[in-house]
């Protein structure tokens, strides 16, 4: 029997139980990567700063994220008297939903034959592809804004406004940086884009796009050096100033989830997805290749965090609007001309 998913033009209809299993597996993989990214962030940053990083909980400190999350979850929930109750509780959920939903389109491999059933190693392969990710990254702005506004605190509010402005500005550059790839590959579907990279990874012809994407991804995920909303000296803690306990843990995990997703999208769009150069490994290696590449890109995030100082806010805006956006536009135009000429 075939169940038509209302919003997915799947290449073949997958039965409902496969879809449910896939949803659970993807959810689990996503939420396994988040503590891993958290751990990697702290450990690697420690090493880069010539210290050990967390090393008390578990072997090599590997259970530190569990301890952190456990501590946060068992803390008392409290909120300021001026806050707006339901929005205050709901805003972190928006952030988390948007992060988790985007993970559904990351392809970990092509279609494989598992016990005689064709299964695609991705959540859904939508025809709108990368636009799906942008739709949810557009909505995730609300998570920050509502959180900051509903806190009823000026620090939170200003931090939220800063983050939202930053996100909106860099979303444009991010979208344009990927447009070159869409033009070259001729498809929006992420699996299609990965398959189009079998000859050459898009990081080579689209190197400018890759640089723009990575810089925008730093800003979009609010990671250092673009963590202006959390500039302690000016804004205390940004939009999450008033949050504590499990709600703060949700925001915190969502931030790392966004980082994982930005890395995974970079892998899919620029670094060949599940493909390896010169070798053609068996199908079961594909998800491992994607995961390893994703972790490597996360290392770049950590590396940038330890390397660059935080820019001023006007510098951040100038970088986004006056350098990255014109550069990305020029990249799109040049790519389009080349594609038309060589076609």
């Amino acid at each position: 029997m075939s169940v038509l998913v209302p919003f997915a033009e799947v290449g073949f209809a997958e039965s409902w139980w496969i879809q449910i299993i896939k949803a659970v597996v993807i959810f689990l993989v996503g939420f396994t990567l988040v503590p891993l990214a958290l751990m990697l962030d702290r450990k690697l940053m420690g090493r880069m700063q010539m210290r050990y990083g967390p090393n008390r909980v578990g072997p090599y400190g590997a259970l530190q994220p569990m301890a952190d999350i456990g501590k946060l979850l068992f803390k008392q929930q409290f909120r300021p008297r001026t806050s707006v109750g339901f929005l205050f509780a709901f805003a972190p959920v928006i952030s988390m939903i948007c992060a988790a939903a985007t993970f559904a389109i990351i392809p970990f491999g092509g279609t494989v034959d598992i016990f005689g059933t064709e299964v695609g190693l991705y959540g859904i392969d939508v025809s709108i592809g990368i636009l799906f990710a942008f739709a949810f990254s557009g909505l995730s702005v609300y998570g920050l804004m509502l959180g900051g506004w509903a806190s009823g605190s000026k620090y939170s509010f200003l931090g939220a406004m800063r983050s939202a402005a930053q996100l909106i500005s860099y979303e444009l550059a991010m979208g344009f940086s990927i447009l070159g790839i869409v033009i070259t590959a001729g498809t929006l579907s992420l699996t299609g884009i990965v398959e189009a990279q079998s000859g050459m990874w898009y990081i080579v012809p689209q190197f400018v796009g890759f640089c723009i994407y990575i810089v925008s991804a730093f800003a979009e995920t609010g990671r250092p050096p673009f963590d202006l909303s959390e500039a302690e000296a000016e804004l205390v803690g940004g939009y999450s100033t008033e949050y504590g306990g499990g709600r703060f843990a949700t925001y915190y995990a969502a931030e790392y989830f966004h980082m994982v997703i930005a890395s995974a999208i970079a892998v899919t769009m620029f670094l060949g997805g599940w493909q390896l150069p010169f070798v053609d490994p068996p199908t079961w290696v594909d998800p491992i290749v994607v995961l390893v590449k994703t972790v490597l890109v996360i290392c770049v995030f950590v590396w940038a965090r330890t390397t660059f100082p935080r820019p001023r806010y006007d510098q951040l805006m100038a970088l986004g609007w006056k350098i990255l956006l014109p550069l990305a536009t020029a990249n799109v135009i040049v790519t389009a001309i080349i594609v038309v000429v060589t076609d």
Binding site: G138, M145, A164
Partner: peptide, 9 residues
């Protein structure tokens, strides 16, 4: 994602 966010602003 874009227009209404500005309204909210």
């Amino acid at each position: 994602g874009a227009v209404t966010v500005l309204y909210v602003f």
